[in-house]
Every structure is written in C-alpha cells, then in structure tokens.
Write a protein that binds this DNA or RNA. Structure first.
Lengths: 239, 239
DNA sequence: CGGCCGCTTGACTACGATCAAAATACGTGG
DNA sequence: CCACGTATTTTGATCGTAGTCAAGCGGCCG
C-alpha cells in the first residue's frame, strides 16, 4: 500500500526494512475522496497527516475576490500534509484534483517515530524540505520566467516526480487537470494559459491531449525552462 | 549569542533549558560577511548549517538572462540553511543583504540532536516548515494579488517576524534593502516597484525612508494585503 | 568637487487580463 | 445510439498593468 511512498523516499536515501515496517505501522485507515472534495480544510487542526496513495491533489488558497492560487501539486507517494504534524493549524486547504485514495498517519504515531527512528525522521523531514525547494522553484518561475518557460518548467518537474513513483510511460504521463486548474497553478488567466500552451504545442516540444501530456523533445523543453533537477534531490545518499 | 534563535523557537513552543544547552553546544565558530558576499554558494555541499545572528540575508537564484529572483528573506534568529542539513546540495545561493554576523552548526552535531532530542528536532523541523509556509504565501501573493497588495503583505510579514526577535521599535523597523533588491523579492521591475511604493505612501499607510519602514495604519495595511498571520505559527503550543 | 549609486519621473511598448462568443468534448437520459 | 445540456477548450477584440528605455535628481564618499 505504501509502495509509492517508499519509491519516493528511496529516491533520496536507503530505507531499511525496519524503517519500512515502522512506516507501515503508523498507517491506519484509508479513505477515498471525490474530485473537488477538500481532503484537508483551511484552518483545521488535523490530528493525523495524509499520505496520497493514488490520484492528484493540490494545496490552494482562495482570496477574497474568489480567485484561487494553487501552491503545490501532489502526486501519489507524497505525504500531502506532513507539515501539519508540527504546524498544527492548516494555513491552507488541500483539494482532490481527481478521485484520490489516501491513507492516514496519526500525529501521535509520527511523534513516536521522531523518538525512536532518527534516520527515518530525517527522511520525513527531507520530504517536507523538498516540498520547500519546489516552492522556491515556483517562486522563481512566477517572478522571473516567461509564462511559456514557466509552463515548460512545470511539465519537466511533473515528469520527473511521476517517474520516481512509476507513473510515466515512455515520455507520457496522465495529468487529469483542466486548463483552468493549470492556470491556477501558474497564476494566470485561463485564456492566457491556453495561448501559452499553444506556443509549446506549435514548437512541437509537447503534445497535450485527453489529460495526457507527452514530451516530444525533452532537451528543447528543458532548455526552454532552464530546468535543473537539483532541487528535487533525486540522488541516493546518506541524509 | 543565540538569544534571537531562542526567541524565534519560543514563539512556537516551550524550549527547556536542557534543549537550550543542547542548541548552544552545536554552535561552533561565528563569522562576519560583508554586504553582497555569498554566505552559501549555489551548488555547494556545506557540512554545516548557518544561523543568522545579526543582519539580513536572502536566498536567491540567478537566471541565464542575468535576472535575479529572491525566494526568501532572513532576519536575525533564522537558521538560514538548516534545510541543507538533509538536502546536502544547495539548490540556490544565500547572499548577505547587509553586514551579517552568523554562527555555524556542524551537520554531524545536528544529526546527534535528531538522535537524542526528539522534541528539539521537531522544533527545528518546524522552523523549516514555517519557511515553507512563507514560501506558499509568497506564491499566492505573486500569482493572485495586485502588486500593491503584495508589497503590503511583505511589509506585514516582515513586521511580525522582526517583532518576534525584538527588532521593531513601535511601528518601525529597519530594512536595509535597496528598491532594486525589493523588486527582486516581488518579481517585478525596479521602476514599477518604485511606482507601487508611491501608491502605499500616497495612501498614507506607511512611511519608508532611510532604510526604515514605518507602518502608519496597520489595519488598513493588513486589509489591503488580506494579511492573515496564521501561516507564521506564532502560537506557543506543544509541537 | 566630482563621480557613483540609488531614487524618481515620463514616454512608449508589450504582455497578460477581461469580455464575449464559438467550437468541441462529455455525460445523461430518452 | 442519438439528443440535449453542461463543462472545457479555443479564438478574437479590447483594455490595463507592468516592462523597457531614457533622462534627471539627490545624497554620499573619496
């Protein structure tokens, strides 16, 4: 059940079978959320953290004028609100962008891990740190890249993150988000997102149909995005 | 020497004298950086983490066209590159925005803390989590707020963060950044930042002269920014 | 005193938002 | 299997925000 989480953690460092067992023990029940459901509500104080087993979810914030900004996208194997473990109060909401299968880990059990499994603790800590690294890349993209480059960057990132958990097929991956939702990720209007997407298609670097993204020319796409994967920490080394 | 770090941590939870001692022990030598110096270089693999004792520093990334995006601002009491402890390779650089006094903590000593001090570990973890929460607020501001609102939000945030470590006087605080540097924070051009700043001044909500920001009307400023301090986790509770 | 850096202002341009409408895909019930 | 209603994608036109270019101003330091 937690295979994808393990794939995720093992992309950074070795996870022993002991640690695997300890992780498995903190996972309690699972749950299913429908597209559009809130998995965690803004302002709530959850007593557990949520592991995404299957599907896509997003962290978001709604402003007074009704506009939405998505601050993170989560793929299977991500601990979507591990930060609530120390944060206590959710400063934002998490919504299911597709049907989502999740599992829960009680904070009290996670606390025990910090008391008995220092290395595993560091790996979970790292998971939240990589999250921060992704946030920083997004800030750079929003502030200083062209919209076309920003979109290209997002595609590169999602490809690598999905590859880690075995969710790419060749150069393709499924991304069940509407263009309006992608616009909320990049912080632009639906209309302009569409026009930006056309640019990438016209360049022939990607195909994007039926909720499926296919990368036709990785080199050119990465060049356009000035993509450097360092921030994803995809090297296995002692942490 | 680590008073400001303690003020920072104690804004979130109780820190025992034992933990205070443990923290003090991991601090080794101190160092001084001049304005503009790199405190940590992009791509480096530091063996220690850096605690900012005095001054302002910024995390940044430079793009191929030479433009710069600042992804975080650090104030005294911040562990500026604690994330390098688990990240190992720096995906961005950290620069001194003023003369900066820093102290170092060896990663090997931090590792011992994760092995012997679970609660203190969670507090340090929280420090990096709050960092992430700030990143998310910045993403929201960049993506969906007006530039005026974004700037107002930054001022609110800095005021509260500086207040925690005792660096505000009444409604004023020192911010030794040029307008060009603030522009690199907000992701806009120097010229437009200047015009945006004029708007806030004309509204009479702030004064900003001689590297000193004075908030004249907090309520209006916070309203403009839709500022909600939840993300800074400024409540003392068990973590 | 002179040069440099940072701030300010104005003119022009371009990117991206908004508004509006058409075209396409999708799901449901007949 | 088709008809219909709804959601999503696409296109075009217009407007406004923010970028770029350029020049002038002011203070600080050598």
């Amino acid at each position: 059940m937690i295979e994808k989480l393990l794939l995720n953690l093992r992309s950074h460092d070795v996870v022993t079978v002991d640690e695997e067992a300890a992780l498995f023990e903190v996972i309690t029940r699972t749950a299913l959320f429908q597209t559009g459901d809130d998995i965690v509500a803004q302002g709530s104080r959850p007593r557990h953290s949520t592991l995404l087993l299957d599907g896509f979810s997003a962290r978001y914030k709604i402003l007074e004028d009704g506009s939405r900004q998505i601050t993170a996208l989560h793929v299977p194997g991500d601990f979507v609100d591990l930060h609530a473990f120390t944060l206590k109060t959710m400063d934002h909401g998490i919504v299911a962008m597709s049907v989502c299968k999740v599992a829960f880990a009680e904070h009290s059990d996670l606390q025990k891990i910090t008391e008995t499994q220092p290395h595993l603790t560091r790996l979970l800590w790292l998971d939240t740190i990589v999250d921060g690294a992704i946030h920083r890349e997004w800030i750079v993209a929003m502030g200083r890249r062209s919209k076309k480059s920003h979109l290209a960057h997002l595609i590169c990132e999602l490809y690598l993150r999905l590859q880690v958990v075995g969710l790419v097929e060749g150069w393709s991956f499924r991304l069940p988000l509407s263009q309006g939702e992608i616009a909320d990720v990049l912080g632009l209007s639906l209309v302009h997102l569409n026009k930006t997407l056309q640019l990438l298609r016209q360049d022939g670097v990607i195909r994007w149909e039926n909720k499926t993204v296919e990368i036709l020319r990785w080199e050119e796409l990465a060049q356009l995005a000035e993509f450097d994967a360092t921030y994803l920490s995809l090297t296995v080394e002692p942490r």
